[in-house]
Design a binder for these strands. Structure first.
Length: 277
DNA sequence: CGTGTTTGACCAGCGC
DNA sequence: GCGCTGGTCAAACACG
């Protein structure tokens, strides 16, 4: 997405800058340094603008869908009705949910005090898409798959793999009636930031397009309490997340090492001018 | 070779 | 105690 490439450009820009801050660079490099610095500042301001726009849009989105979205904690997931348009399919998804709920209800009594948060996400998928993948902005590692009794479609089990210590699990199963509908049941809360801002946008857009559950941009259940807290803490978090995204982009992007190598070998200027064209 | 997925085996909880 | 079921493990496999 655009924001992602922007952050990548930004990281490359920063990298270029740091490379060029080697002791006593030649005059042509100083000129380039100046240009890159300006470009970097422009990108930074663009990024800030985008973040503000994103915040505003997201706030609007939450206002729009908040009242209808089911607060999908274990207690509220089934009590609040989903939007009428999705009523039938949600009920059919409920077939799958019932097994989850009944399984969880057994534990409920025991774990009432310390049970992890459970929430659900309904996602429409292409009928031809047979994968049990719900793109919610986090990295998941599949650790099991099982065919359950009340649904011929297999249920897939995932763990959050973005952070080794993250306790969150999710189960994804197609609705027995509507095979286009994926029901993702999340368990626990993430103890880290979302892996990708682009994925966040993806998740949010999916939600507006066809999903109808409590699901914040951070992939956590969107309760009023947590929402208020996050609104307050958003700006510092956002900056920190951007920094992490940048670092992540640096380590993941093979092109970055090529840029570094090119810069070091003196081909940097050629690449830079070529990019401008 | 490292990482993620698949899949059969295993385990624990529950109802009868 | 036994069988059923959901959830997890871990070896084998696939892929980049």
């Amino acid at each position: 997405m655009e924001s992602h490439s922007l952050s990548l450009d930004l990281t490359i820009g920063i990298a270029k800058q740091s490379i060029l801050q080697e002791p006593s660079p030649p005059p042509c490099l100083q000129e380039e340094l100046k240009r890159v610095t300006e470009e970097n500042m422009k990108l930074t301001s663009m990024l800030a603008t985008m973040c503000e726009s994103y915040d505003a849009l997201r706030a609007q989105l939450i206002d729009m869908i908040g009242p209808t979205a089911a607060v999908a904690s274990s207690e509220g997931a089934r009590s609040s009705s989903p939007p009428s348009a999705k009523r039938k399919s949600t009920e059919s998804a409920g077939d799958a949910d019932d097994s989850v709920s009944s399984a969880n209800s057994c534990k409920k009594a025991k774990e009432e005090g310390s049970k992890p948060k459970i929430w659900k996400l309904y996602a429409r998928t292409d009928p031809s898409d047979s994968s049990l993948v719900v793109r919610d902005g986090y990295q998941w590692r599949k650790y099991g798959q099982k065919v359950t009794r009340d649904n011929p479609c297999p249920r897939a089990y995932f763990r959050c793999s973005f952070a080794p210590t993250c306790p969150v699990k999710k189960k994804v199963q197609r609705s027995a009636d509507d095979h286009c509908l994926l029901v993702a049941t999340y368990e626990g809360e993430h103890n880290h930031y979302q892996s990708s801002a682009a994925e966040v946008e993806n998740a949010v857009s999916r939600k507006t397009a066809g999903t109808a559950d409590g699901f914040g941009a951070a992939g956590a259940p969107e309760t009023k309490d947590s929402r208020g807290e996050r609104e307050e803490a958003r700006q510092p978090e956002l900056r920190e997340r951007l920094v992490k995204d940048m670092a992540s982009s640096l380590t993941k992007d093979p092109n970055f090492t090529a840029v570094i190598a090119a810069a070091i070998s003196g081909r940097f200027l050629g690449i830079s001018t070529a990019q401008e064209m």
